[in-house]
């Protein structure tokens, strides 16, 4: 009777698995970079959506095991380093928001898109209010909340476009996982 050789994945299969593992984090990083591309200048506005928050929310609901807290922290920290603001602000806000989203995940997972979107509305409102409270404490003054409100409103408005994009990538790349 012929003996079967123990299974060992081919280099291509290994590479594919690595790509699948790092893909959500890579998308998070791409979202961080996209936040600093002056897209608003096309229409003469300084407003830019919070792209990393979209990635964090999406993966926290859809595949939380592929976007662990370490990835959320790293995305927030890189955003802080690039933005020139308070170090740790968005790392902290994103990790807390991620924890809140994970705790309420069962309400949104497998629900219609409208529920998914409303869930994001609450997540964005929470993240914006939390960041605003921290920054007001840091500066010891009442920071005008207008800019963060506009920032989060734009983020919620463009969220469906990015959900489509993330969904496509998830279907194409992560289907076999």
């Amino acid at each position: 009777m012929p003996r079967l050789e123990p299974y060992s994945p081919t280099p291509a299969a290994r590479a594919g698995r690595i790509v699948m593992t790092v893909m959500p984090f890579a998308m998070g990083l791409a979202c961080v970079l996209l936040s600093f591309v002056p897209l608003g200048r096309i229409v003469g506005s300084p407003l830019t959506p919070a792209f990393p928050l979209m990635a964090i929310y999406y993966w926290a609901i859809v595949r939380p095991e592929m976007f662990p807290p370490l990835a959320v922290f790293a995305v927030g920290l890189i955003f802080d380093l690039l933005s020139g603001g308070a170090i740790g602000l968005w790392a902290f806000v994103y990790v807390v928001t991620y924890a809140v989203v994970i705790s309420q995940r069962m309400l949104v997972v497998n629900a219609p898109f409208s529920v998914f979107w409303v869930g994001f509305l609450f997540a964005a409102a929470f993240a914006g209010a939390f960041a605003w409270a921290i920054i007001s404490i840091i500066h010891g003054m009442f920071v005008p909340p207008g800019s963060v409100a506009r920032h989060m409103a734009v983020t919620v408005a463009v969220f469906p476009i990015f959900v489509m994009l993330f969904g496509r990538i998830q279907t194409r790349v992560l289907q076999g996982n």
């Binding site: 936040s35 600093f36 591309v37 002056p38 897209l39 608003g40 200048r41 300084p46 830019t48 955003f79 690039l82 933005s83 020139g84 603001g85 308070a86 602000l89 968005w90 914006g128 960041a131 605003w132 920054i135 920071v143 800019s147 963060v148 506009r150 920032h151 989060m152």
Partner: peptide, 8 residues
């Protein structure tokens, strides 16, 4: 680049 965040 843009500032990226609402507080900076």
């Amino acid at each position: 680049s843009d500032s990226g965040g609402p507080f900076v």
